[in-house]
Design a protein around this nucleic acid. Sequence first.
RNA 1: GUCCCCUUCGUCUAGUGGCCCAGGACACUGGGUUUUCAUCCCAGCAACAGGGGUUCGACUCCCCUAGGGGACGCCA
Length: 494
Amino acid sequence: MVVRTRLAPSPTGAPHLGSAYAALFNRAFAHQHGGQFILRIEDTDKARSSDASESAILEALRWLGLDWDEGPIVGGPKGPYRQSERISTYEQHIQKLCKLEGAFHCFCTKERLDQIRRQQMLEGKVPKYDGLCLSLSESEVEARLEQGVPHVIRLRVPDEGTCQFTDGVRGEIEIPWSQVDMQVLIKSDGFPTYHFASTVDDHLMEISHVFRGEEWISSYPKHQLVYKYFDWKMPQHYHLPLLRNVDQSKMSKRRNATSINYYRRCGYLPEALLNYLATMGWSMPEEREKFSLEEFYAKFDPNRLSSRGPVFDTEKLSWLNGLYIRELSHDELKRRIYDWAFGENRLDALLTLVQERSERFDDLFRQADYILGDRSALDSQQFDHKSVSQQDCLRILDFADRRFESIEEWDREILYSALKTLSEAMSLKFRDFLFPLFVAIAGRSVALPLFDSLVLLGSDVTRVRLRSAIQTLGGISKKQRKILDREWQGLSRE
RNA sequence: GUCCCCUUCGUCUAGUGGCCCAGGACACUGGGUUUUCAUCCCAGCAACAGGGGUUCGACUCCCCUAGGGGACGCCA
């Protein structure tokens, strides 16, 4: 059998460490079996997907050296590899699935669905679709479709019995069908949901093995059902443990840097990051902790995968990274550091800023310290200001962070107008508004121009520094968060 | 709340019934090398969640409890 694996990221944000983690195992398994590793872009969420995010993901995977054998840019025989370009395929398949009685049209309104969900929650039941439209006759369905009544297409799910399957990592798993919702397969905009697009594509792209995160276990029954209705062979699934925050919760950017770009910007080497990731939930037979990608491909064995979610420990990652840095040849080190510090025209942009403010060459390092490296640690007194209270600083930092969340293109002018607008909405003098941001970003209130600095640092480092500054100011309690949420909503409306 | 998954040092892990009064690594502590620092070397600290079984024997198998996590969207 030809082994074909895939990574199926959705381009809805910064490239996530979890994607690199899954890519690593999928690619290792395919390559050690002489198969192919496919990259498929799951951009079926029109509202959240973006081209910028897609290219960021491709770039991040390239940086890590996790190239794909088939997918965007490189192409391949099973393309296109972007789901938004495969809509007609899903249309054909959903028609077939309806004929096979594996799916049905549903005309229920959002209001009705919200209401039954609330009711079910109240009764302590599993919130799920009640099957109302299942009783519609064929002619009724036809009539409503002709009238153009908005609708979705849902998966037909057995109401009793259990779904059984074998997870490559955990063994036998059973989930009662009563727990499984009649999942929407086709949304009212005609686009497929993940559950449908992904199963159809895995089949058509002849995927044989899937390594994906544990959070998918509970939707496995839905996927299995689609395969059964079509009478397709299902790939072997391995559910990887979830990377965790220090507090054991699923790794999230609220508490941790999850963007691959953050680690890149901080000066981690791709080979070290990958090596570290490979030791999360997996170990070499002889327990060696430092090994190359090639060695990993040679030794990888899914039987050694563990199911316990590992804490992503940057301290140990740094130790490993140090090992890699110290063994670089002098020339290689020179090249890597240059690329890291000044690659992609960073030096040009930086020199222009510094030149205007320079009297001697050594001014470069004094002024650019927080751009080239980490800013100094903060203490709360640095946020003392004659007209901005620390509470205001906290609000400004939090709101700026929220604003940055939705900025797609990390561009000087866009950032400027976003913050300018925000300061006006908060009725603050722009000058005062910028004060805490300077401290948070540069570690001091006087520094190189803020917006140029933000661009040079990138969104990930910027936001990590913002959040770290918020912690310095005592953090935000749950109660405060609620108040800020409300205020933020008010600001956004205006 | 319901279902599912997980549970060895603070953290990553080894361990697939006797090799384990549990081994390695990070972190931490102490010492050595080094003009400082770092590296490097040596030593130390520290864990089988709890309770029942099964067995001659349980970290390993079964059950229960507790704790942690995940899922429950026209997001993926």
